[in-house]
């Protein structure tokens, strides 16, 4: 009885202490701002604005996806996964790409979900299929591409994206047999949880789910922040058109547009308009390269992937995506 009272008392006091520290934090930050803002070059302020805007835009999606990741952690067992994923490798890849296509996600939000799925026993290649089609193919992206560039481009974007995802996931399945997560130790075995779970009430399961979501947020948040900062740095200090010194062939401009998609790290729902603004500058196949490549991999999400997976795997995935998308785009021009 006494302990319970003490607990609620502690709870109140801690909440109050947190509030006070938050208040001090805010006023300290603001006074730092007052001291430094006079000397800050305006380019830093611009950089900061772009950096924060990427975060403000991404954070709601990250929060939703860490909640989903928490849900997967607590409510989905390895047995479920075993039952749902087809035994056949090709079927598994196909299913994962289709599920990704149905599932609306953005390219940074999908990383925690895929990580959690793979830790639950989803084969790496199926995780990759889901990772690639999730942000690229979904109703919002289809619609914004249609509005910005017309139905043919929207169709090609989805079609080529889907084929590329299948191909990449297949090659990954040949190259990597084991799970490529960074913390691949005993910690990821979930058998203990599965057995322990029988006794848990729904309420305590929900509580665990939220705790996992919080840990996931801090785990992925740091990579999101680093990624957003680097992307903002590039936007502030690198001249876009300086990329265009590389050749004027279709292949050359496709490489440029892919590089651009990579460094800009745009959200897949917003990139169609940016792509459209290059209509007069590059062939439409190069815009297609921009639209297919960007959602699959970009600067921001490479850093997040790197936080979740082994370096060698991330590097291989990066090279594969680049090669496959580039080849497919060039095949299109021959048709």
């Amino acid at each position: 009885m006494f302990s319970r009272q003490l607990q609620s008392y502690l709870f109140d006091v801690t909440g109050l202490v947190v509030m006070i520290i938050v208040f001090y934090f805010i006023s300290a930050s603001q006074s730092i701002g007052k001291i430094f803002s006079i000397n800050m070059p305006s380019s830093f302020l611009q950089l900061n604005t772009i950096f924060l805007s990427i975060l403000i835009e991404a954070i709601p999606f990250i929060l939703i996806s860490v909640l989903i990741a928490g849900f997967i952690q607590i409510f989905i067992t390895e047995d479920h996964i075993k039952r749902w994923i087809p035994k056949n490798r090709f079927a598994a890849i196909f299913v994962s790409c289709v599920v990704g296509a149905i599932f609306p996600a953005c390219e940074c939000g999908i990383v925690p979900i895929v990580r959690r799925l793979i830790s639950k026993g989803v084969p790496t290649y199926a995780g990759v299929g889901f990772l690639l089609t999730g942000p690229l193919i979904n109703p919002i992206v289809i619609f914004s591409t249609y509005v910005a560039l017309g139905s043919k481009m929207a169709g090609l974007r989805m079609g080529i994206g889907f084929i590329a995802a299948l191909a990449i996931a297949f090659i990954i399945s040949l190259l990597f047999k084991s799970n490529q997560l960074q913390h691949n130790g005993a910690g990821f075995s979930n058998t203990a949880v599965n057995t322990g779970k029988q006794h848990q009430s729904l309420f305590s399961k929900l509580e665990d789910m939220l705790k996992h979501a919080i840990d996931e947020f801090f785990d992925m948040g740091k990579y999101l922040i680093i990624g957003a900062f680097v992307a903002a740095l590039v936007q502030t200090y690198v001249t876009t058109t300086s990329l265009f010194i590389l050749g004027d062939s279709v292949a050359g401009s496709s490489i440029i547009m892919m590089a651009l998609a990579y460094v800009l790290s745009l959200c897949s729902e917003a990139d169609a308009f940016i792509g459209a603004s290059f209509k007069n500058l590059v062939p439409s196949t190069s815009i297609l390269a921009f639209l297919v490549y960007g959602p699959m991999i970009d600067l921001k999400n490479t850093i997040m992937l790197w936080g979740a997976f082994k370096t060698k795997f991330v590097l291989t995935l990066f090279i594969l995506i680049t090669l496959i998308v580039f080849l497919l785009i060039n095949l299109i021009t021959l048709l």
């Binding site: 934090f25 930050s29 603001q30 730092i32």
Partner: peptide, 12 residues
């Protein structure tokens, strides 16, 4: 870091 810069500097 973003929270410090967010409170410190007004958006440009």
């Amino acid at each position: 870091f973003p929270l410090v810069t967010g409170f410190a500097f007004a958006p440009a």
